[in-house]
Design a protein around this nucleic acid. Structure first.
Lengths: 242, 242
DNA sequence: TAGTGGTCTAGACCACGAC
DNA sequence: TCGTGGTCTAGACCACTAT
């Protein structure tokens, strides 16, 4: 690396510095999703470190789903629409049968002033403009999820019209604004169905799984606040604890 | 390692073979919880591999929470009652304030024939004997979780009487029978309160978070089936997606 | 056959904790 | 000061993929 190690205080291992330098290339868009990155040997020469140090940095980025290794071919920048990555942030599975990714129907798309909660979670000034969406997601013909999604309007200029919004939003964020969703925190509660009951085809007061998600980009900045109300009669939320 | 690499088919990296050999020492009880294990150098000599290979095996075991490294001191076998490990399998957090670990009151403890569901999940013969517990868990004076726990009676001979069952069951499994819970799969649903309503102090039909957990030991064998019904008025289930 | 990542080795030096 | 884990290097060979 160009800079020398500073004093003991604030010390960062070399491979973490390499990692940060490589993540910056993703943030800057110098490396685009799907693109093959230089080989470990090339990166090592470029950064003046050994191949082993580059390897350790790449290994951590692979574990973070930022890169994908393909033996014999090379290392590639992960894409939000990779079949496996689609389920990185989607944990609802049918009780019977394999994983499915529900279709979406956009019921509303507005610009509005952020609520206090939205402003705080998204790190915006009070009352800043947000893009807010209401979606109904279905498996086959059966509606299973009602979603409210809020985005900072500033970060998504030229957001598409209602008919042009695709099902996979994270892929849209990536292709149109170069924003990669790298991690998310979810909090789950059981709640009684209220205004969503009609859309979901359940009775008022029926138990719903409410999932509150804050999604962050590569720089850890909050990007999207999403609140989903899920019918869990034939679905469940799956978690592996290891 | 003693055995040579077999043909290409069924190939396992050396560090994974080392890992399996070390995990076996935990399964056998040759390494006890809290114990310091030999240094990397010693293990490398003993197994006839390099220190780097031992290190890679230890690194994976640390990530699995089986070992704990303490720089300058050594590497230790993880204990189920380590402050941090208690929360490895407990994801409910108060909406406000820091993490808490609820107290438990055992309402029932029986031996009974396994239900079909229990037999299948725990990999038992139909109708085999299980130990079944009903617990009510509270934060302060407020009941928040009703739990049903099923264990294979064969694997837990001499299970304590009702008054002698501690709050931390996984620590009990470890100390009395040498069974380490290494991983668990949870499935979550929202359900309406039924028979538990009285104990939890909510109304019948109130939404509860139902958590279905299958816990496995170091050999991946299912050990415990636990179904929790949680009041999520002031609690939430937290998940980090990375 | 050439180039890539995957694994393995051997040795060096540093940071930390116990003595 | 000593022993531990933490990091870094340099080089070797293997397995996989594409050509």
């Amino acid at each position: 690396m160009a800079e020398e190690q500073s004093a003991a205080i604030g010390y960062k291992p070399l491979y973490m510095q390499v990692r940060e330098s490589l993540v910056q290339r993703l943030i800057d868009g110098r490396w685009q999703p799907g693109e093959m990155i230089p080989s470990e040997i090339q990166l090592a020469q470029e950064l003046n470190v050994s191949q082993g140090t580059v390897r350790k940095a790449l290994d951590t980025m692979v574990k973070e789903y930022l890169l994908v290794r393909r033996q014999g071919r090379g290392t590639f920048v992960a894409q939000a629409d990779d079949a496996k990555l689609v389920f990185q942030f989607f944990r609802l599975k049918p009780d019977e049968g394999g994983a499915v990714y529900p279709d979406s129907r956009l019921r509303a798309l507005d610009r509005a002033a952020a609520t206090d909660d939205e402003a705080e979670m998204l790190d915006l000034a009070p009352g800043a403009a947000v893009i807010r969406m209401e979606r109904l997601r279905s498996i086959g013909e059966t509606p299973v999820i009602a979603e409210t999604i809020a985005l900072s309007a500033d970060r998504f200029p030229g957001f598409p019209e209602r008919d042009a919004v695709p099902n996979n939003l994270y892929h849209l964020y990536s292709t149109h604004w170069g924003i990669t969703i790298a991690q998310a925190e979810e909090t789950l509660k059981a709640v009684a169905a209220g205004a969503d009951a009609a859309a979901l085809g359940c009775s008022v007061g029926a138990p719903l799984l409410r999932v509150h998600r804050l999604a962050r980009d590569l720089s850890d900045r909050p990007v999207e606040l999403r609140i989903s109300r899920c019918l869990t009669d034939a679905l469940h939320y799956a978690v592996k604890l290891t």
